[in-house]
Write a protein that binds this DNA or RNA. Structure first.
Length: 471
DNA sequence: ATGTGC
């Protein structure tokens, strides 16, 4: 793949083959994906989608994914034949991050460390399959949750109304269509409301180690040495089943519509078509399920903290990094309705954006970046003039495949090293730990520095782990 | 990511 270095933080893939727009890769030379990884070919493939506008973007944490790269952003013109593609969202619809700030500093944590980690370990269902904080919900609760997301979880006592001001979309994506969610997806979702899942999902106790922007940190409710809880999880089996169902449905209609794509995993349909609308309605419902999942888990973590210390947790923000959203953006001097796919990429709204609550006007939208296990995480904020439809990175980004990681890492040694470095570990299978070893990931400090250097966001605070409950 | 694979 031929790359043109435009700046130290921005590379271009010129149009070739079926590409309708160029590719843009935000990276440094060091962070560019290795040859053979396939992700830059995926950036070029995405550029061939009908209705794509601007460019096919890759963030500094880009790596290979299903159809679209993880760390990819692509927007299509919703009213002029632009398509929506489930592969541009990913199987874990609305996977994302919730950060809560404790009324506690890191010295207080050290005094209760073992007891608190034990309580969190018991309170947070994890691993594959069933088992959830909100067990035995009624069918009617699932319906409302698919439509109202965190709002319904709060209505049912899993949080307080103030939480909703700190949720993307105030707790629920509009236009969810629960009737587009199949029975199998519902059955899988019923027993998993308030559960981490596995893979790279976790709940972490962290401390604010460095503040880069004191004013924004204060507006987000963060200060040095403060203890925080970060939850990283998604829509579990429900979102996975929805993705599977709708990829299949779209795959069947592509030929009839005369849509051709360079990779079958880019199955898509026009936003304004029965299949496109059906997917977007079901996807929004899965997004609301994922938000409610994080709402319930944050509540469970707060209850555990209160039992051990008497202190509470306040929500800093909750944001999805796997989602397609209908948003208005200016393209070529015109306001247009775009379907912005962010897959392993985070929305980063600048200060004063109308979709933010007014008390975030000065600071902008909090962007939550989970690092790999045992490494730092970041809180960032959006910037005026940001590129890629107000988007930035979502994490460290894989450098090794799961298979490579398992071959090169001894889970027992990893667990011991984490404990020795002061990170208490609860849960996590041997295989799961090895797959998520920090050596399998890029350096999150470098990823975030490049995202900031490329003008996509600004650093607010750096957080370091004190304890992890591993999915 | 996922009751991990048509």
């Amino acid at each position: 793949m031929r790359l043109v270095e435009e700046t130290p933080f921005r590379f271009r893939i010129d149009r070739h083959g079926d590409m309708r727009v160029p590719g843009v890769v935000f990276a440094s030379r060091e962070l560019l994906p290795p040859a053979g990884d396939g992700s830059l070919e995926q950036v070029a493939n995405v550029a061939a989608l009908p209705g794509i506008v601007g460019a096919s973007y890759a963030m500094p944490d880009v790596h290979w994914g299903y159809g679209f790269p993880i760390g990819g952003v692509a927007a299509t013109d919703a009213r002029r034949g632009g398509v929506v593609s489930p592969g541009g969202v990913g199987f874990d619809i609305s996977c994302g991050v919730r950060l809560l700030a404790a009324d506690l500093d890191r010295r207080d944590f050290q005094r209760v460390r073992e007891e608190l980690m034990d309580q969190l370990g018991r309170a947070v269902p994890r691993g594959p399959g069933r088992g959830a904080v909100w067990d035995l919900p009624r069918r009617e609760d699932l319906e409302r949750l698919l439509r109202d997301g965190s709002r319904h979880a709060v209505d049912r006592g899993y949080g307080v109304p103030r939480d909703l001001d700190r949720c993307e979309d105030f707790g629920a994506v509009p236009d969810a269509e629960p009737e587009q969610v199949g029975e199998r997806a519902r059955e899988r979702g019923l027993g998993q409301i308030g559960s981490l899942g596995s893979g790279n999902h976790f709940l972490e106790v962290q401390a604010v180690e460095q503040v880069h922007d004191a004013r924004a940190a204060e507006e987000f409710g963060l200060h040095p040495d403060q203890v925080c809880v970060m939850v990283h999880c998604g829509s579990r089996g429900l979102g996975h089943q929805i993705c599977t169902d709708h990829v299949r449905a779209m795959d069947r209609t592509m030929a009839d519509r005369g849509i051709t794509v360079p990779d079958r995993q880019l199955a898509c349909a026009p936003v304004d078509s029965p299949e496109g609308r059906a997917y977007l309605g079901a996807m929004a419902a899965a997004a609301n399920y994922a938000r409610a999942n994080r709402q319930v888990l944050g509540w469970a973590a707060g209850a555990a903290l209160r039992r051990v210390t008497g202190r509470g947790l306040d929500l800093v923000y909750d944001i999805s990094h796997n989602l397609a959203k209908l948003e208005e953006h200016e393209v070529g001097g015109q306001r247009r309705l775009l379907c912005v796919h962010r897959k392993g990429a985070t929305r980063a709204l600048p200060p004063g954006h109308p979709d933010l609550p007014r008390d975030l006007d000065a600071a902008g939208q909090p962007v939550l970046i989970p690092g790999s296990m045992g490494t730092a995480s970041y809180v960032l904020t959006g910037v005026a003039g940001g590129d890629a439809f107000h988007s930035t990175c979502h994490g460290a980004g894989r450098r090794q495949s799961r298979h490579q990681a398992v071959r090169s890492v001894d889970a027992k040694v990893l667990r011991r090293d984490l404990e020795r470095s002061g990170v208490a570990v609860r849960g996590g299978s041997a295989r799961g730990l090895a797959e998520e070893a920090p050596t399998a990931y890029k350096d999150v400090d470098a990823v975030v520095a490049v995202a900031e250097g490329a003008g996509l966001c600004r650093r607010v605070a750096r957080l370091v782990p004190l304890g992890v409950v591993k999915g």
